[in-house]
């Protein structure tokens, strides 16, 4: 069975822009993968069409079938995590093994206030 896991240092999932996300990737695959990729992705969720982008991508080519490695990546300046009633902006850290395929992800909050910006009556713009 092909598996990949993300372990975040101190299980921390909330960061401010420019901080460093540290952690470890661990995988067990049936064959040597073409690559292991780690992506920090933002995406919108809500009423309109979904938008998404990988803000940070790290790639390791042809690693061993079973191994682990430490990673560090710098949190981009934005967009900040946001939970509105019309739209939310969500961040995800996603680890991907490419052929054989395995994927793992964990939600990340990027905020200057320790939690996602939440909807208030101020954003009632309909």
């Amino acid at each position: 069975m092909n598996t990949i896991k993300i372990h975040l240092t101190d299980d921390r999932t909330t960061y401010t822009p420019e901080q460093t996300i540290r952690g470890k990737l661990e995988w067990q695959l049936d064959d040597r993968p073409r690559a292991i990729e780690l992506q920090l992705i933002w995406q919108t969720e809500g009423k309109g069409t979904k938008d998404a982008d990988a803000a940070v991508v790290q790639r390791w080519d042809s690693p061993a079938p079973s191994d682990e490695l430490s990673f560090e990546l710098t949190v981009p300046p934005g967009p900040l995590s946001y939970h509105g009633s019309m739209i939310s902006i969500l961040w995800t850290l996603e680890a991907l093994a490419v052929k054989p395929h395995a994927v793992a992800s964990c939600g990340i909050t990027i905020s200057t206030a320790g939690q996602a910006i939440e909807f208030s009556t101020a954003d009632r713009d309909e």
Binding site: E45, H83, S85, S88
Partner: peptide
Amino acid sequence: PAHLNPFRAS
């Protein structure tokens, strides 16, 4: 919040 709305676009 939009990301918990069962009728979100995704």
